[in-house]
């Protein structure tokens, strides 16, 4: 089967600063990749490049077999992104927000799709309320609905837990688990334990370089967290 994400010597350089340096990966479909690393290791830059928000300086990246440099628009149809920002307009209703994105993507029968997603995240009863009135947890749930409105094959999670209370985290995890079917996930998170529990593959970055990459079975958590601490220590110096 075709890999969900393939990168070859992917780099993001500006001037002499290498934010991401020669990353080569292959992530199979259906995998859950967690990216670890200290601040400034290039996790977010890598995520932004893979989600077409930022153009690589050199190297190639393919998403579902589509070259991101050549046909970013085609690849965007397969991408969903959930970040710590909800990417929802606070002054529009839940329904208006989802409908906006559904129509921009060109989803057929947008109204039905919006209802379906609202039901999936259990917010149908609040669909006519303005997003500003939602709690952080509800906003994040709606954000999941927004990210999945185009039924993406690859979903990126950029620090999705920041600002969520434990209960909201639980609901969030359940929702993600219910949407795992047939999708590939890539997550950047500071929470080592959580990221490790959820993933099937792990990538550790330091200063833009790959320190370790492989399926989870290759790592044992104790050794892994030791490796991670070393990496973080390296980043601090």
């Amino acid at each position: 089967m075709q890999a969900a994400i393939t990168t070859k010597k992917l780099s993001k350089v500006f001037g002499t600063r290498k934010a991401v340096d020669n990353i080569s990966l292959e992530v199979p479909q259906g995998a859950f990749l967690s990216i670890f690393g200290p601040n400034g290791a290039g996790k977010t830059t890598l995520l932004r490049m893979l989600s077409t928000l930022s153009r690589p300086t050199s190297g190639t990246a393919k998403l579902m077999g589509i070259d991101l440099k050549e046909d970013a628009d085609k690849a965007r149809e397969h991408i969903g992104l959930i970040s710590h920002n909800s990417m929802l307009y606070p002054d529009l209703t839940a329904e208006q927000n989802l409908l906006l994105y559904a129509q921009l993507y060109g989803v057929q029968n947008p109204h039905e799709r919006v209802m379906e997603m609202l039901e999936a995240v259990e917010l149908k009863h609040r669909r006519l309320d303005v997003v500003r009135t939602f709690s952080r947890g509800m906003t994040q749930r709606l954000s999941i609905a927004r990210a999945l409105i185009n039924d993406p094959d690859v979903v990126f999670l950029d620090e999705p837990y920041s600002g969520l209370d434990p209960h909201a985290v639980e609901i969030f995890d359940e929702l993600i688990a219910s949407q795992r079917e047939g999708r590939t996930f890539v997550m950047v998170s500071h929470d080592l334990q959580k990221g490790f529990d959820m993933c099937t593959h792990a990538l550790v970055l330091a200063r833009g370089k790959e320190v370790a990459f492989g399926p989870k079975e290759e790592f044992e958590f104790g050794a892994f967290s030791l490796l991670y601490r070393e990496t973080v220590g390296m980043g601090v110096s």
Binding site: A72, R76, G80, N85, S86, Y89, Y101, Y105
Partner: peptide
């Protein structure tokens, strides 16, 4: 300001347009 407030601009940029 609205586009930046919740990162909406990125959401729009993720759409193929």
């Amino acid at each position: 300001n609205h586009e930046k407030e919740q990162g909406c601009l990125e959401g729009i940029l993720l759409v193929p347009l």
